[in-house]
Write a protein that binds this DNA or RNA. Structure first.
Length: 491
DNA sequence: AAAAAAC
């Protein structure tokens, strides 16, 4: 494993990386940084969560002349949140060098962006449409662009941005370096590379490194109308620190949020019809752990890097098997462990098999969570919470109160009552979801998938038995109605 | 058919 020190990175960038806690490189970084530093065009076939942003950010920033106040680099990303996030990371990497990055995306007041651009950032991270808008308004000038990065190129293709991308690339007046990152390399992206790139070097992260080894994957075999109750039970048993729940449609997301709120969970939703300002607030609250549960469409499936996400739920199977990998990649980040639970209705079982083939991992069937499981889980959690507070009361006057109580009541009864008080019965408020969208799967001819993953097929069945209930509960509910709204952060 | 994205 290589460290950043070995890669000819200039001191102040290296220093910034160290401050960010980055020492050893990921495979894509080790391969892409030296190539990009040589000034070569590069195609990086790598997925989200592999350290891509640093892989292109370091060479991009190293190349910048901080005395020059023109825009010297542009990153194009498929979603607004991603543009924001990449911008934040570039700002950190470029901080010591005095390199400024401004995110440019739709849904935000354009005069505000023009003001930010007047402060002369050297880097811009953008979504395609708004970037094009600025280019045509001449509020972003391209004459000194040195580097262009296309992030998640295949996703931009899927979302129909390819014409915008081509229009942007065609506007570039002079020679520049182009770095293209894509999880898959469909024909259309290859053509784009041929047209706009100059003898690109191809860097591939091996298939095995693409898979998500530290994420435990499970599925629940459910009927459509059981999903919501199973979700709540699973949340009660698992007690995630932070969870993301993916739904298939915007309406679906709204309904799940509403249902969760009705039952006392702390949840917020995000999708493309939510006003941009609210979207950013929702993400911020979730990052700050002020909200425990984020319910989302695939707008949040790619690239979002939120630390502390312990659980991902696929409330609905994703249409596109690729999307499954991206969704579950929101957990288990930075080497931490994560769990992914997928709800599968009987007619969707074939689709699940397709996903298993793609990820080369078996997704383990999880037994239906019973009410008894939930109560056991809640009780265990309550016991855990009690245990954590036991020593805290040493020597204070609560001990005296406890002695008085124990002189009157049976000790076991007292503790049992305490557990019962803490292990609040889950809300049974009826919730009825109406937005059942049947899954439509593209028919694929003769197995000719367009995903050239370069690996063998077949499952690598890595975990045999141990199908039973595993439970880890850390945080516990507080009192009454807003039990999930207050979090017990201190151990 | 849905999702995302420029006004």
């Amino acid at each position: 494993m290589k460290t950043f020190n070995e890669l000819n990175i200039e001191a102040n960038v290296l220093d910034a990386l160290a401050k960010m806690g980055f020492e050893t490189t990921t495979p894509i970084q080790a391969q892409a940084i030296p190539t990009a530093l040589e000034g070569k065009d590069l195609i990086g076939q790598a997925q989200t969560g592999t350290g891509k942003t640093t892989a292109f950010g370091v060479p991009m920033i190293q190349k910048i002349d901080p005395e020059n106040k023109d825009v010297q680099g542009i990153v194009i990303a498929p979603t607004r949140e991603l543009a924001i996030q990449v911008g934040e990371e570039l700002n950190r990497i470029g901080h010591n060098k005095g390199v400024k990055t401004v995110p440019i995306y739709g849904g935000q007041d354009i005069t505000r962006q023009i003001k930010a651009l007047k402060r002369r950032p050297q880097l811009i991270t953008a979504t395609p449409g708004r970037l094009l808008d600025h280019i045509r308004r001449r509020t972003i000038k391209l004459q000194n662009i040195e580097t262009v990065v296309l992030d998640e190129a295949d996703e931009m293709l899927n979302m129909g941005f390819i014409e915008d991308i081509e229009a942007i690339l065609a506007e570039m007046p002079q020679k520049h370096q182009t770095l293209l990152f894509s999880a898959t390399m469909p024909k259309r992206i290859q053509l784009l590379a041929e047209k706009f790139m100059n003898q690109p070097e191809i860097v591939r992260v091996k298939s095995k490194q693409l898979t998500v080894d530290h994420i435990d994957q499970y599925y629940y075999d459910v009927k459509e109308n059981q999903k919501f109750d199973v979700l709540c039970r699973s949340l009660d048993i698992e007690s995630p620190d932070l969870a993301i729940i993916f739904g298939r449609t915007k309406k679906r997301v709204d309904e799940v949020v509403e249902g969760l709120l009705k039952r006392g969970y702390s949840a917020e939703g995000i999708h493309g019809d939510i006003p941009q300002v609210k979207r950013e607030k929702v993400i911020k609250r979730f990052k700050d752990q002020a909200t425990d549960i984020l319910v989302a469409t695939d707008v949040a499936a790619r690239g979002l890097d939120i630390s502390g996400v312990t659980h991902v739920y696929n409330f609905d199977l994703p249409q596109d098997p690729e999307s499954y990998v991206h969704r579950i990649g929101r957990t288990g980040r930075a080497g931490k462990k994560g769990s992914a639970y997928t709800f599968v209705t009987p007619r969707e079982m074939d689709h699940l098999k397709t996903i298993e083939k793609l990820t080369k991992r078996q997704i383990e069937k999880q037994s239906f969570p019973t009410y008894k499981d939930v109560m056991e889980g809640l009780q265990e959690g309550a016991i855990e919470e009690l245990k954590q507070t036991v020593w805290a009361h040493e020597g204070d006057n609560y001990r005296e109160a406890a002695k008085r109580l124990l002189s009157e009541e049976d000790a076991v009864d007292v503790v049992a009552s305490a557990i019962k008080l803490l292990a609040k019965e889950p809300s049974q408020t009826p919730v009825n979801l109406t937005s059942v969208e049947p899954l439509r799967v593209k028919r694929v001819k003769g197995g000719g998938q367009q995903n050239n993953r370069g690996g063998r097929g077949g499952n690598q069945n890595r975990r045999g038995g141990g199908g039973g209930g595993r439970r880890r509960r850390n945080n516990q509910k507080q009192d009454g109605g807003n039990r999930r709204n207050n979090r017990n952060k201190n151990q």
